[in-house]
Simulated scan of single mutants.
Amino acid sequence: MKKAFVIVIIGLLIVFGGIFGFKAFVNSKIAEAMAHMPKPVVTVSAATAEIAHWHPQLRAVASLAAVQGVDVTPQIAGNVTAIHFRSGQYVQAGTPLVQIDDSTQLAQLASDQAQLRLASSNLHRTQELIATKAASQAQLDSAQATYQTDQAAIKDIQATLNKLTIRAPFSGYLGIRQVNVGQYLTPGTKIVDLQSWSPLYANFTLPQSDLQNIQAGTPVQIQTDALPGQTFSGKVTALGSAVNSTTRQIEVQATIDNPKNQLRPGLFGELTVVRDTTEKVLVIPVSAISYNTYGDYVYIIHQEKKDGKTQETAMQQVIKPGKQRDGMVEILSGLKQGDRIVTAGQVKLVNGSLVTISHDA
């Protein structure tokens, strides 16, 4: 029994040894054949690392605000008797917007005007009498005081009437109407918002380290996803008086031109502060950079001669990228001016791949 078990084990070893030996033989022949096969040539697109002159830029997220913007509200309580505007309408400064019931004040004005006419007559009569010494100075003083008091009462009621006719405090665009005829309004009730759209303020913050690079008059540009592809220009008009002690940021305000009224208060966008100086930077297309867990890299194209023939190979090169702008990226280290790098087709490459440059890409 023991002898039969040993024979079976030996037989299995022979069988499996033959199988693995055959596979090893086949693999060695395949490797030998592959070693004699020419390397495949990968078609790629290429570009040259070159020097560009960039204006140093500071970037921030900015919020747009109206130079003049307000919620129109009443100062005196009362019922709305008339509405003189439409939602979204452009109005000039002083345009009547809403009329609040002024019937009581108009009646009071008529009474005060009658009192003023009487006081005026009494004053005139007293002045004539005092000229003939038929009235005393005390009577004249009393008549003048009554006349002036009645004048003041009319001015007071006229001021109240002016407040009951709510007008646009400045020219601009109205928002959505919030009130209706017959509605009772109390002081502070929002009637409509009024905003001026041109120009607009852009409010943003910058780190304290950038304070030396910005001042009133520094040009800025802003883009917003509400109007993709469009850039609006302006200038810095004010800086905060102090750096925030918690965030170490300083508040900055720029004024943005909005000639076609495309921008709206409340929008936010990416703002760029453009400095007057320029700097030389080494740049390549952003599409040339590949990424992995070990860092960013590109494929540099090298020329070499082999067997009397010139061939081009792609070799990986670790780089340190910097700022990006208009599809180009600054290279801080890893490349030099004139290096040719692969911009398309990297996914088909390995270190040392033979390449040919496509001039159609």
Rank of each mutant, 00 (worst) to 15 (best):
T224R: 13
Q208P: 03
G188S: 08
F268E: 11
Q148D: 11
L227D: 01
D257Q: 15
L206V: 03
P259M: 12
V181N: 02
V273H: 06
Y173R: 15
Q208V: 03
L174Y: 09
A202Y: 03
V274I: 15
T246V: 04
V192K: 04
V274N: 12
P219E: 06
I166D: 08
R248V: 06
Q221M: 13
T237K: 07
E251A: 11
G217H: 11
N180Q: 06
N258R: 13
D193N: 13
A226C: 10
K280W: 09
A242N: 10
T165C: 08
Q151P: 09
V243W: 01
G269K: 10
Q215G: 11
G229I: 08
V179G: 01
K280F: 10
A226W: 05
G217M: 11
N258P: 06
N244A: 04
Q253N: 05
F170S: 11
P199F: 00
N162R: 14
K163E: 12
Q148F: 08
T149H: 07
N244D: 02
F170P: 06
T247R: 05
I191Q: 02
S171Q: 14
T149P: 03
L271P: 04
P219G: 10
L185M: 03
Q212T: 15
A152G: 04
S198L: 08
I176K: 15
T272R: 14
D193I: 04
Y147W: 13
N180W: 01
Q158T: 14
N261P: 07
V192S: 03
W197F: 12
K235Q: 14
A254F: 02
V192R: 01
P265F: 09
Q183I: 04
I154D: 04
Y173H: 15
Q208R: 04
N180T: 00
Q178K: 13
T237L: 06
T149C: 04
